[in-house]
Design a protein around this nucleic acid. Sequence first.
RNA 1: GGGCGGGUGGCGGAAUAGGUAGACGCGACGGCCUCAAAAGCCGUUGGGCUUCGGCCCGUGAGGGUUCGAUUCCCUCUCCGCCCA
Length: 825
Amino acid sequence: MGNKVYSSQKEYKPQEIEKKWQDFWAEKDTYKVSEDAPGEKYYVLEMFPYPSGRIHMGHVRNYTIGDVASRFKKARGFNVLHPIGWDAFGLPAENAAIQNAIHPSTWTRANIEQMKQQLMRLGFSYDWSREIATCDVEYYRWEQWLFTRLHREGLAYRKTSVVNWDPVDQTVLANEQVIDGKGWRSGAVVEKKEIPQWFLRVSDYSEELLSELEKMQGWPDAVKTMQKNWIGKSDGVEADFPVDGGKDVLKIFTTRPDTIMGVTYLALAPEHPLTGEVAKKNSEVADFIAQCRKAPVSEAEVETMEKSGVPLGIDAIHPISEEKIPVWTANFVLMSYGTGAVMSVPAHDQRDWEFAKQYSLPIKQVIFPGDGSTFDIEKEAFTEKGALGDSGWLSGLTSQEAFGKIAEYLREKSAGGAKTNYRLRDWGISRQRYWGAPIPIVYCERCGEVPVPDSDLPVELPLEIDIDGERIPALSAIESFIATSCPACKGPARRETDTMDTFVESSWYFLRYASPDFKDGMFEPGKASYWLPVNQYIGGIEHAILHLLYSRFFTKVLRDIGVFELDEPFANLLTQGMVVKDGAKMSKSLGNTVDPDDMIVRYGADTVRMFMLFAAPVEKDLEWSEQGVNGMFRFLGRVWRFAVGFFAEPKDEEQIRELQAEGKTAVLTAATNRTIKKVTEDIESFKFNTAISAIMELFNELSALWKEKSVGSEHARETLLAVARLIYPMAPHFAEELWELSGESGNLVNKEWIKWDEGAFESAEITIPVRVNSRVRNQISLSPDADEETARKIALSDSRVKEYIAGRKIKNFVYVPKRLVDIRV
RNA sequence: GGGCGGGUGGCGGAAUAGGUAGACGCGACGGCCUCAAAAGCCGUUGGGCUUCGGCCCGUGAGGGUUCGAUUCCCUCUCCGCCCA
């Protein structure tokens, strides 16, 4: 480049420098990568953004972390893939369309353009040639293709199910989109509704999704625990309770089969088919069902709400005692978990106990404390395990023994047996919204549901539509879209009008980056094999469960249907903390957001990046502080002015001479090498805050030694260049400019990582403290490998140490090499 | 109710195979520069005492192990997140 126009600038002007380097990088296609480059591959990925309009500080933090990792790995010799794209389908685009009479596509594309410019202004090292947007037809067509394969394999199926229905947004909500019984966006009270929906059979993978977690060393324990709890494996027993005088059999699942002799009633979910059957003749039951329809459906809320129920007026036969057990329906039983029917044992389950007390149902104790003590069952349920009593032939067994015996007995009787249950449910992917990928299914009166054949894909989302938010599903308004012919019989048919959950797009985008323009499939297998798995994935903890679990599921499904051989998509995962201000997460509703662009204009991207990395450890929440940002700007300014002065001005005669003999050259060299080692190790392990403080310390030392003229210019230069190279992954524009100012050849972006010399800081003498009775009394100098005898001699001859020993007898002497001496008298 | 994480100066945070607590930065205070301000520069900054040499206390509370505990163990307490 040779453009030294800025070297005359005494003041640090990040805006000019940053523009210059961003243009340079773009012009040279610096970050474009291919599979045939030298070096081991390394795939760094940050969770792609939803194009909401503008980048927020959470993005800046996320992408800065990824950028440092990416630049660092590249300098370390890896062939680094660092892509970005857009999670471009979703409800906000549609809401914006309704409010502002703008098409979701137009709105989304404009946002992408704006946010892309913002990302570029932050100097991120993305390979923009791989940019994808999930609303591109060429993207979602492959998702549709996959859907038809899943359909063929029976992994995508349609069933009627109870859903959380948001009456304002007119859409189905996932459980986690229901907060306190209200829609997360609309705030409307959520209702229950039964509609046919498409599901993906995630539950088939429960066991593998769970057991693989054990092997995933590169994931935080917190995330693994959350997924484990979400999958919710429980070992128990399934038992059949035939309905008295009928053909129906009620299947129940319990993790406490040992309490089965204490069952005093059964409880069915209000949505259970038998409950519905009874309701036809029993208005009390019918009223109860209607009432429950308005109640919350999430497990957390079911737990805290008031329990209620009504008897169905029928009995079931206990599979072991053959006694008649009354059947109730109760609001705390979920149709979506287990079988929608539970056996109630008030004596040994607190919830059943409370329900029994409320409705004066019998409480029968069958488990007794193992130590022979007594327990007052009238006060609360006895929920611990123990010994069985009052249980017929099972009496005397321990809870543990009874588990196996009962499972075996039921199996022999063909009335149940041991069973493993998972809390994880199949993934409902139908959304009644417009702005999403159409589900590629055609309904034919003769042939039923028919997947769209490959030759007819993609099923393009029609762009001519008036979105008013009234018509739900939105696509049902477009007759030209719906009306089609059956791919099988060519007869008249109608298209599915639901679109897919946007989590479907984000479950495989990391594969598409390997070959974003591939025309013959989701991705080019050879390229994907080269790049995958993602070596380092970075994103918010809020995606710990759904996104990460679905992506793992997709990866396994692709493997099992023979598309791509991979078990787990993300080798290492980093979950960064939130950006908070005044103690709360930055959000528009709280009005505590800070616009990254404002900060870039005022301080420059390098300062913002550095502040983000410095202010808190990556996994913790980061408290935004403009004063902190300013502090970082001041630091960069100090380095800048020092460097400009150093490189531009003639060196003082005295400092041009090397000052090895009488100066502090060795001290500076040692500090430089020690810092290179520390920063390297810190960046490797994502400890950016301490990496930056180490760089600051080194610079402070350089600056002080230079000012007091105790180091020569050659050594000062060495340290200054080290500072530039160490700071490069975090503040790349700044570092490149310093490098250019120095007159060194090339650019840091192509330069390999700086090495250190261990010998430079293993000095001949070190200083360690001497403590007397646990108080530091003085420092002594000795060789790092001095033995205890030597250390003792030196320590005891120290005058201050002597003073504190004061002739007393030494009771204990401890010497920890390189650490300290501790004397007890 | 369960699981996970955490409590260190006025603030963000350093330091844990047990070994000089408070690195680095923010803020604050004092000074220099300036007509003034901004920027910049220099110095002080955990608390209490001090004969200015230092001394004592101090990492949520209490106890334990140890020559030595922010770090390990036990009890308690408070906060955050996830799940129920």
